[in-house]
Design a protein around this nucleic acid. Structure first.
Length: 155
DNA sequence: GCCAACGTTGGC
DNA sequence: GCCAACGTTGGC
C-alpha cells in the first residue's frame, strides 16, 4: 500500500465534485507529464491512499482523502480532438497517456499549503520542495499520518 | 500578471 | 546527444 498526492484544479474537478459523483468516483484524466504518468502506470494499486490537493486557486491545499479505485487504463481525452488534452501523436493502438479512477473517502478540515509549510513532519514532502510541479507525487507513511492527523483536528 | 523552475522540442 | 528556445506549472 502506497500513498500519493494528486493535484486538481478545483475549477475543473474539486473534491466536492468527486464526493457528488456516482460511487464518489472519477476518472483522473489529463495528466500529460511522463513522470506522473509512470507513477500511475507502474506503481499505483487500487486501495492506495490519495491526498486530494487543490492547486491553482486562491488557497491551495489538501481538500480531502481519496483512494485509487482502479488499475491504469488509456486516458480517453487523448483521443478527443475537441479536448484540450487531445494528443495527435496518441493512437488507440499506442496510447500515450493513462488514467486511474479515484474515489473520495473522507472530507476533513481544509488543510492549506501555508499551514503545511510549517509542519516539521512535512519538511521533505515532494509537494513542498522548491520548484516541484509534479501533479502526482509520492507521500511517505509519516507524511500521510501527519496530514491525516491535521485534517481530522477540530477546527 | 509576474516569474522561477522545470519539461519538451528541435536544430545542429 | 547537446542545449537554446520555448511552453507550462503554480504559488504569490
Amino acid at each position: 500500500m502506497r500513498y500519493w498526492l494528486m493535484k486538481s484544479e478545483p475549477d475543473e474537478v474539486s473534491f466536492d465534485d468527486v464526493l457528488a459523483a456516482p460511487d464518489r468516483t472519477t476518472a483522473w484524466f489529463g495528466v500529460r507529464n511522463y513522470q506522473a504518468r509512470n507513477f500511475m502506470r507502474d506503481q499505483m494499486q487500487p486501495g492506495d491512499g490519495v491526498l486530494f490537493y487543490h492547486s491553482s486557486c486562491a488557497a491551495p491545499g489538501v481538500a480531502g482523502i481519496a483512494e485509487v479505485a482502479s488499475g491504469p487504463y488509456p486516458d480517453a481525452s487523448q483521443f478527443d480532438p475537441s479536448s484540450k488534452y487531445f494528443d495527435a501523436k496518441a493512437t488507440r493502438e499506442q496510447p500515450r497517456w493513462i488514467s486511474v479512477d479515484v474515489r473520495a473517502v473522507e472530507k476533513g478540515r481544509y488543510l492549506p499549503l501555508t499551514e503545511m509549510r510549517g509542519v516539521p513532519e512535512l519538511d521533505d514532502m515532494v509537494l513542498l520542495r522548491k520548484g516541484s510541479r509534479l501533479s502526482i507525487s509520492p507521500v511517505t507513511p509519516g507524511e500521510w499520518n501527519a496530514v491525516l492527523r491535521l485534517i481530522r483536528q477540530e477546527q
